[in-house]
Write a protein that binds this DNA or RNA. Structure first.
Lengths: 221, 221
DNA sequence: TTGCTTGTTGTACGATCGTATAATAAGGAA
DNA sequence: TTCCTTATTATACGATCGTACAACAAGCAA
């Protein structure tokens, strides 16, 4: 079933210096998996969804193409794992921005939306990564991860809203609205950065937040 | 340069009935181009970005693969043309919803956002189409079309805001905010329809619109 | 009818895709 | 040291990608 050429030693034309150096090194399974995920994220950011195939990822990770199938069930499983990893990374970046804002609830909420329009979150490369994931949400396995990641975002946001004194009954929909506005601004800001600035996006989000707190006259609607 | 097999007649095993029926028919160039664009839109909606390749599109259009390169500079040009076509289609659907709402400016604005969360606009297949375009915005040719389409959306929306009496100085940013919120809700609604309903999305958008009109106490922000 | 133009087809081609697998060698166990 | 496990490599394979182009034929002009 297989044609196997004479084997030819490997590395006999490049790297002719000597044979004392190991040709490759084994890695801790978890570490190797992690480095493959990171390489995938870099390739997705650099080349987008269409460029994230087995061979370029293997080159980026400095391993042979076959190794990917040794650690993951297939390229799709690797991309799914990368989805979760990047999603968590974004969550952590937002959490760090909130933590850096101190203890005032309102300031923490502002920090959350502000961080969404600054690097490393508002970044063309990160958008490319996200689009690659979205283009796979037809597969249930990927759709599941999306739901989990977004549920986490909304949970975090609901917690911030709770700190600010938003009634529990309003938190869910308020979080959905804020997430939608921020995502919509973020998306368009990444897609065509010339149509408005990050500062304008921040201002718009902030103004919307304000309507949830200064509602002295909007109770009739 | 080319290996050309004996030619073999074509259609000698299938379609053996007789030879009186034309094997294909010529089409008006514009009509053919249009049908290729429509076939591309259908394939994008059905199979997403990864499935929109030359052969499936040709099958969907009922022509041979080679014909695509006869009418378009390449598959990418065809997809770009489809982007413009779908974008205009959405614009028209929104305009129709606005027109159907009558003459009251406020009702027309509501109709605009309401239509965004109903078929045929809020549709998983249309999202797949859009994602396919977004994944190509690295190419300047596609990015241009995106900018043109979104500028058109915002123009339309600004016109509706003008009817409602929003000051000219506020229209641009208000249109950006509404577009972002609607797009964000639309996106998440298509990606995971279980996290909230179309009715809830409508309600959230409507509530945001209200803040632009009932602003008796928010002038200090 | 005959001839011509050109829309259309069918296929070749090289590149690249994801996956499978035999051979190789790293590195700890004995 | 020697052996053994298995991580890793290097390829083969079939499918599919976008494009190129020679042959065919539809439909109009004459």
């Amino acid at each position: 079933m297989e044609e196997w050429t004479p084997a030819q030693g490997r590395g006999d034309d490049l790297q002719t210096d000597d044979m004392s150096k190991p040709a490759f090194s084994r890695a801790e399974p978890d570490a190797r998996r992690q480095s493959l995920i990171e390489a995938t994220a870099r390739v997705l950011a650099r080349d987008g969804a269409t460029g994230a195939s087995v061979r370029p990822i293997a080159v980026e990770a400095g391993v042979s193409p076959g190794l990917i199938n040794h650690y993951f069930a297939g390229i799709e499983a690797l991309i799914a794992a990368t989805y979760s990893a990047v999603g968590e990374q974004v969550s952590n970046a937002l959490a760090a921005a909130v933590a850096a804002a101190g203890t005032d609830p309102r300031a923490r909420l502002t920090a959350y939306v502000t961080a969404s329009f600054a690097p490393p979150i508002a970044d063309r490369a990160l958008l490319a990564t996200w689009i690659a994931f979205w283009s796979l949400t037809g597969k249930p396995q990927i759709a599941e991860r999306h739901d989990a990641i977004y549920a986490r975002y909304r949970e975090d946001l609901e917690a911030l809203l709770a700190e600010c004194g938003i009634a529990q009954a309003d938190r869910r929909l308020t979080a959905i609205a804020i997430t939608a506005l921020v995502d919509g601004l973020w998306l368009e800001l990444c897609l065509s950065p010339d149509s408005f600035t990050a500062d304008e996006a921040r201002g718009l989000a902030e103004r919307q937040l304000a309507t949830y707190f200064d509602r002295s006259a909007s109770s009739d609607r």
